[in-house]
Amino acid sequence: MIETFRQVLEQSVARLSAQATMYLPSLFVAIVVFGVAWIAALLVRWLLLHAFKGERVDAFLRRTGIGTMLDHSGRLRASPLMAHAIYYAILLIGLLNAISVFDTDITRDIVDGVVHLLPKLLAAGAIILGGIWLAQYLGRGALVWASNEGFPWARRFCAFVRVVVVFVSIVVAADVLNFARTVFFSAFLIFSIGAVVAACLVLALNHREVYRWFASSRGRDAETGSERSLWHHL
């Protein structure tokens, strides 16, 4: 019994020692690779933060409204944005290289998966970012129009437009990633039908207010005799 136990223990130790002999150098190399990548990432980030002014990118972010979209304070600058983006990109490349050092089926699958998924992830990210920008733009247009028209729920209308546009962009991004397509498509249908029903309910419950707004806006056009003509503004 004791002999059997000793044999099992010896075999286990031998297996462990064989695995350690096989994987420890790889682990060491992986740690070194990742460490080098990390140091390179830190160095590049430091360089970018100190050498790259990015005034043109700053102006672009500000002029297109992307800056305020990503950071509401409007103080987002291109230099830290680029520096952090490149820092994490180098870290990711280092991590993938470190994993690939092991050269096993699992690590190969992980690296292949990330390499194949990355373009899709970037595309999905760009779609969502574009969707948020478009939602901001269209929502703002809806807000200005509704307010100038004297629409009673201008801000809610603006929020509704934004939610719809962002939701559509999420559905498209999920489709690109091939992720929960059916779920998102069903949710989109339910949301659309729900929005129509909600709009009908709002109109039905507030019909007096809606009618008053409609009548006053029509009246504004019709009663030019008692109101200033538009010519009088010029």
């Binding site: 409204g65 305020t68 703002r140 807000l143 200005v144 307010s147 801000r155 008692s226 200033r228 009088h232």
Partner: peptide, 25 residues
């Protein structure tokens, strides 16, 4: 030329409530 003062002031007050987001740009 007739003017509707109340309507103009109401438009300003409504605009201030609704359009702060745009004005703040």
């Amino acid at each position: 030329i007739p003017v509707n003062l109340d309507r103009m002031v109401q438009a300003f007050v409504r605009g201030e409530a609704d359009l702060r987001e745009v004005w703040s740009m």
